[in-house]
């Protein structure tokens, strides 16, 4: 009788797999980043290159596009595992799905949310973001994109078994993204207006903590339902 594999093995095996897969499919991974970059480049071209017009739009615009770019990348989160039967094997391994899910989401964030965050100051320049806004923009995106990846994984797991789940995925996820967007942009705007931002960051942090604890549970449940159906 073989014993169940220790969690350290599960952790390293699934992390290694996700990293290798992200590297092999780097075209797909780069897609949301290019989308993010293009839209923000187009705004000054399409609206007006004048700082006075762009500066008030900057925090909201960058946040909205970051959100859409994340949404764009969610569909592939569980898709290939579903198609090739790896998802069944994950469920049948008897391992904690929580661990496997959090690994997948972590790598998803590292390849989507983190580059978006790193890219945002450059796009801030394009959008004539006032100097006080940079640090809050980067930090709010840092916390916010983590939330977006975690919450989005719930929608991805619920719709993985559907043939055309893309539209449904957006409908499920959008309302859940609203609070993150509100507090994320509010933090940047308050900083630009010279107010304290600790309140907004506290709420963002609280949302991240809640998502970190609860979202993987919801994802695990949703994956079981998707495989069962």
């Amino acid at each position: 009788m073989s014993d169940i594999a220790p969690q350290s093995h599960v952790l390293s095996a699934s992390l290694r797999r996700e990293f290798v897969l992200a590297f092999r499919n780097r075209g797909e991974v780069a897609n949301p980043l290019i989308f993010f970059f293009c839209i923000i480049i187009f705004v000054p071209l399409g609206i007006s290159p004048e700082g006075k017009v762009l500066a008030p739009l900057a925090p909201g615009m960058i946040w909205i596009v970051a959100l859409l770019a994340t949404l764009l990348s969610l569909d592939r989160l569980f898709r290939s595992d579903w198609e090739d039967g790896s998802l069944e094997q994950m469920l049948l391994s008897g391992q904690s799905l929580y661990l496997i899910v959090i690994n997948k989401v972590f790598v998803h964030w590292l390849t989507t949310g983190l580059p978006l965050t790193a890219l945002s100051p450059f796009l801030g320049v394009m959008m004539s973001l006032p100097a006080e806004g940079y640090l809050p923009l980067v930090s709010s995106l840092f916390l916010g994109t983590c939330c977006l990846s975690l919450i989005g994984a719930i929608g991805a797991a619920l719709t993985v078994a559907l043939r055309r789940g893309g539209l449904l995925l957006s409908l499920i996820i959008m309302p859940l993204y609203v609070p993150v967007l509100i507090f994320g942009t509010a933090a940047v705007r308050s900083a630009i207006d010279g107010y304290s931002v600790s309140g907004q960051f506290a709420v963002l942090g609280a949302m991240l903590t809640a998502a970190l604890v609860l979202a993987p549970l919801a994802v695990s449940g949703a994956l079981r339902i998707s495989v069962d159906s």
Partner: peptide
């Protein structure tokens, strides 16, 4: 369990696939 879908990721090599599977399922 060996199902209709074998649980082999096409982007990975056979070795990587086996490392992943037995990382999850354990081997002596």
């Amino acid at each position: 369990y060996h199902g209709h879908h074998a649980g082999i990721n096409p982007s990975l090599t056979p070795l990587e696939n086996l490392h992943w599977y037995f990382g999850l399922n354990g081997v002596a």
